[in-house]
Design a protein around this nucleic acid. Structure first.
Lengths: 341, 341
DNA sequence: CTGTTAGCGCTTTCAG
DNA sequence: CTGAAAGCGCTAACAG
């Protein structure tokens, strides 16, 4: 491996002169610089960023830790993050946790050893050890989700969508269509977004004086399969349901699948609204009314947050909530009042 | 930032002793090691991997350059790669190129400055400059696609699926169902996989003495939209078509969409087979017959290839082709011979 | 404008 | 078993 010393010797200058040429330092004659730059190309030299990091005390790398890059939600975020970070001269080291606390610790630890300048992370439920690590961090950190109650003291920023408002909006749409007998298919209540979406559903009903019971709420999971089971259970308990709010699109699509297979017409018999606006939700056979999340935007903004903190040399805490858009397609429609299955 | 020196001073030992404790060096008394390890925890010290890289002349980082992490094909590969690499103590630095040659150069260049130990990359068409860079590389490199004609001299490994065989298999399935009037909707011929899939289609027809004409071949693009246009064009020119092979699932789904909207029955009127087996292709309304690609496996194996080369300290060239599986669902069926639209 | 030198945080001889 | 010292490739004063 060629070093700056080799180049210096080869070109008959000192290492500092080479360094100056490399770093756009003004203290260098134009011709010398040109000569050196040419020589570097010719000799096929690549500077060692790790050595540079060592002395400059900044690595120009930021860590990205997420649960699963395979999830379209995160892959789009990851795209946005890499886009802005690379444009700013940062590299991104990425790790998947699969929500496994041990892997979370491993990834975090190796990231910190690499002396990353910043960290963007979608943590699971931070246990004491993890919480402790994050507390000690003296670099900009952005959470890709709202801070929980017991995390409020952390000096980390966060970016997320307003799950509560978004769910409220979705349910409101249903009510405006005349529905007053709704059901909810949810993801786990443990995830804060799950809780918030459920709260949005309940509060919207309450505010409009529409009665609801626990029978109309099923916590199913996150996948298509769970959506299928979810509707089935819902309709068993409340056969005259006319509208369903599913806490994510996969759940909604599963519901749609089950309804189609069981000869329910959508939206004539049952309206369905989802949450997330996956690519597939706009397919001809699905045309799901759903809440669109600005995924790439989340990525872009989170990266910008760390870049800004990095350039201003101050770690300021910021909690941003992005707005969402209700996309009305063909899976929701007006109630047919006398329709009883 | 605490350094090994601080720890040494604090604990009243030398830096080399601390280093030994950190690196499981046998030349250290058990109690000393324990004392140091305890002190490190207490003092909240994190070793600097960049300094270590500098002296050890290996960075324990590998680069991953792909076109678009958002593409489910790549995100699954990326998952597999990170899984094995992190288990082996490597970190992965990732970059998206969006097939932009300038971005490709930028990413590659910054990766090399970071002195990565290995590189996994899905390159576009390498121009001369890029080709030159890759030629100079003295680290293990794995291409996530077959080497092209003019790349054969490169000392890089590759892993890919056998696109030709896979396409052949898909078309053969159609022919076995009695179809003898087929159409092809393709992605760009410039991409080698595009070319191979087309070749598989043509050769299969030729081998079975089924006539075909250019009218039955449409190069459409890669997205749903293109699939829609693709079938339309195909049926315009050859209205009595009974089967279509689409070179990827999105194309196939687009075709399915258009067919549904135009009152063609699938598979009664037209059979459709795709390529890639996306998650959505198994949905109730789609149930696409398609070729399944072992995506995660590609990631896992590519990572294993670099790990093996790294541990054996030899760069050996290896070109692996993975097998695929034809998944028969509901979008293909026997010809109805007298059916003429 | 250019060269010399110290030293970033660490590992690795080499003595002891 | 432990410590002192050299040096990885680079940048950043400081002289000149």
């Amino acid at each position: 491996m060629k070093t700056i010393k080799d180049i210096a010797k080869e070109l008959g200058v000192s290492v500092s002169t080479v360094s100056r040429a490399l770093n756009d330092n003004p203290d260098i004659k134009k011709e010398t610089k040109e000569k050196i730059l040419e020589g570097i190309k010719r000799l096929n030299y690549t500077p060692n960023a790790n050595a540079r990091s060592l002395i400059q005390k900044k690595s120009k790398m930021v860590g990205l830790m997420l649960s699963d890059i395979t999830d379209p939600f995160f892959s789009e975020i990851a795209l946005g993050i890499e886009e802005v970070l690379s444009a700013e001269g940062y590299q991104v080291i990425y790790g998947n946790t699969l929500l496994n606390p041990d892997k979370e610790k491993e990834v975090l630890s190796s990231l910190l050893q690499r002396k990353i300048d910043g960290l963007i992370i979608k943590p699971g439920a931070l246990d004491e050890e993890l919480l402790n690590i994050v507390e000690q961090l003296d670099i900009p950190v952005v959470f890709l989700r709202k801070l929980k109650e017991y995390e409020q003291h952390l000096k980390v920023s966060s970016i997320d969508v307003n799950h509560y408002e978004s769910a409220y909006k979705a349910v409101d749409h249903l009510i405006n269509l005349g529905h007053d007998n709704l059901g909810f298919i949810g993801i786990s209540k443990k995830a804060s977004e799950g809780e918030d979406r459920l709260k949005g559903y309940i509060n919207c009903l309450e505010n409009q004086n529409i009665s609801y019971s626990d029978d109309n709420i099923v916590i199913a999971g996150t996948k298509i399969e769970h959506g299928r089971k979810g509707v089935e259970k819902l309709l068993e308990k409340t056969p005259n349901l006319t509208a369903i709010f599913a806490a994510n699109d996969l759940l909604a699509i599963g519901a749609l699948e089950w309804l189609a297979e069981n000869n329910y017409k959508v939206p004539e018999d049952v309206s369905v609204v989802g949450f997330e606006n996956l690519e597939i939700s706009s397919l001809h056979w699905i045309k799901l009314t759903t809440v669109d999340l600005p995924r790439k935007e989340i990525g872009v903004q989170s990266a910008n947050m760390v870049v800004n903190m990095l350039s201003s040399e101050t770690i300021k805490k910021e909690e941003v909530e992005l707005d969402t858009t209700l996309i009305i397609r063909k899976s929701t429609g007006k109630v047919k009042y006398l329709n009883i299955n």
